[in-house]
Deep mutational scan, measured.
Amino acid sequence: MASQGTKRSYEQMETDGERQNATEIRASVGKMIGGIGRFYIQMCTELKLSDYEGRLIQNSLTIERMVLSAFDERRNKYLEEHPSAGKDPKKTGGPIYRRVNGKWMRELILYDKEEIRRIWRQANNGDDATAGLTHMMIWHSNLNDATYQRTRALVRTGMDPRMCSLMQGSTLPRRSGAAGAAVKGVGTMVMELVRMIKRGINDRNFWRGENGRKTRIAYERMCNILKGKFQTAAQKAMMDQVRESRNPGNAEFEDLTFLARSALILRGSVAHKSCLPACVYGPAVASGYDFEREGYSLVGIDPFRLLQNSQVYSLIRPNENPAHKSQLVWMACHSAAFEDLRVLSFIKGTKVLPRGKLSTRGVQIASNENMETMESSTLELRSRYWAIRTRSGGNTNQQRASAGQISIQPTFSVQRNLPFDRTTIMAAFNGNTEGRTSDMRTEIIRMMESARPEDVSFQGRGVFELSDEKAASPIVPSFDMSNEGSYFFGDNAEEYDN
């Protein structure tokens, strides 16, 4: 783990906690998980779902989305002020799938948001429990990260689609708070800032007046979040320049895209947490497990152990491969979309394939898809080993990566060399080191050039047997250095459309 220093740990961010010791953190995270579980059980009762239907990941996603929508204050306010045809701002819903006479049927349900809020609060001892809501947002974000390569979004903001390893959390809503900021990748933060800068260039009043003052505060806050992700002084200094700019424009845009590229080699610290679907927490609570009393951590053995003992089902389209669908969801559960496939294969105990080789589309089923041909199958979400999630980018030494994705962002704290394609990355730096950030740029390029592919990161860190909950005997895996390590390699994943 990167030293926490003055930073709060993510469990504290996750639970809005002030400084807590490890036991208190485990208890408050457990409380959050228990609340999600209780809410899910109650919703299944309301909807009269069978046990099997309640364990269907598509039903879980609909129920999670309903509660997130019920608590989305800004959108609710907007919907009330701008009524649109056929949208009731006070209601929320989605597809629920039921097994009827041996076939899967889709039923569109509609609930009062007020009623959903009441059920959620009741499951969370009367609190709004925003930490639990954020947790579900991060699960949705991790699922998107594993399912889609955001080529269009990258290109629109002047970045290269091969930089997708920097895009963790790119679909997280803005209201996801400190826990959300911690899991956002460098590219995601750059993209958010670039969008602001572009608006400022096109709209003279963007930075002016009372609204402009708020915009400015948001801009500086985002700059500080991004600065905190960088691990070298030169990158941090460049972020200070971007933040202090009187009138952010093209120079800042250039600096930010430069920094994003540099992060492929001088990786930023991005938190990883295993956020599971509500249909995993519900049955665990129903079986009598007391998360608050037992304590829970999002970055240790607990999620692995929970998945070892969970039964989750998914709808499967006619030509999809259930094992591939399982891999997709497994990666999402562990926030591992940008991790090295060699490491993932070792931990999972079966070969993890790149996205383009998977015969599976996303987990969600569109409303126009034919239910007649839908089957369902068990998702295999178990693992051979477990490993500690990392909050750091690993040290800054790398190795060759593949054509589709030119770097990785480690999820697990496991000893290995970190793949990246130096030639491709360095070719993108057209040696432009003039301007006010020239000395920093020169320094950053120097550090990137001296990074050695064969150097090892996370020295001495290994994986653990599932029986080793105290992480007492690390097993340090050895990897084939020459092997392909990137998930979005030469990829044809669908595009994420909101």
Results as ranks from 00 to 15, higher is better:
3 S>T: 15
11 E>V: 06
15 T>L: 11
21 N>T: 09
28 S>W: 03
32 M>H: 12
42 Q>Y: 09
42 Q>E: 10
43 M>L: 13
43 M>Q: 03
44 C>I: 14
50 S>H: 09
50 S>D: 14
54 G>M: 09
54 G>F: 08
60 S>M: 04
62 T>G: 15
64 E>S: 04
76 N>V: 03
79 L>P: 08
80 E>K: 11
82 H>W: 04
94 G>N: 08
102 G>C: 10
109 I>D: 07
117 R>G: 09
121 R>W: 10
127 D>G: 12
130 T>N: 06
133 L>Y: 05
134 T>Y: 00
134 T>L: 06
138 I>C: 10
140 H>V: 15
143 L>P: 02
144 N>E: 01
148 Y>I: 03
153 A>M: 12
154 L>D: 02
155 V>D: 10
162 R>I: 02
164 C>D: 00
169 G>F: 04
170 S>Y: 08
173 P>I: 05
177 G>A: 14
191 M>E: 03
194 V>E: 02
195 R>Q: 02
198 K>S: 08
199 R>H: 10
201 I>R: 00
201 I>D: 00
207 W>K: 02
222 M>E: 13
238 M>V: 11
239 M>Q: 00
251 A>I: 14
252 E>C: 03
258 F>M: 09
258 F>V: 10
263 A>E: 10
279 C>V: 13
279 C>E: 05
280 V>L: 11
284 A>D: 07
286 A>Y: 05
292 E>L: 15
296 Y>E: 03
298 L>T: 06
305 R>G: 14
313 Y>L: 15
320 E>L: 04
321 N>E: 02
323 A>M: 13
328 L>P: 07
333 C>P: 00
337 A>G: 11
337 A>T: 10
343 V>E: 12
370 N>L: 14
386 W>E: 05
405 Q>S: 03
411 T>I: 13
420 F>P: 01
420 F>E: 00
425 I>Y: 09
426 M>Q: 03
438 S>N: 15
441 R>L: 00
443 E>C: 12
444 I>E: 03
445 I>A: 09
449 E>T: 03
456 V>H: 00
459 Q>G: 09
477 P>W: 05
481 M>C: 07
482 S>V: 13
484 E>N: 15
490 G>E: 12
490 G>R: 10
491 D>C: 10
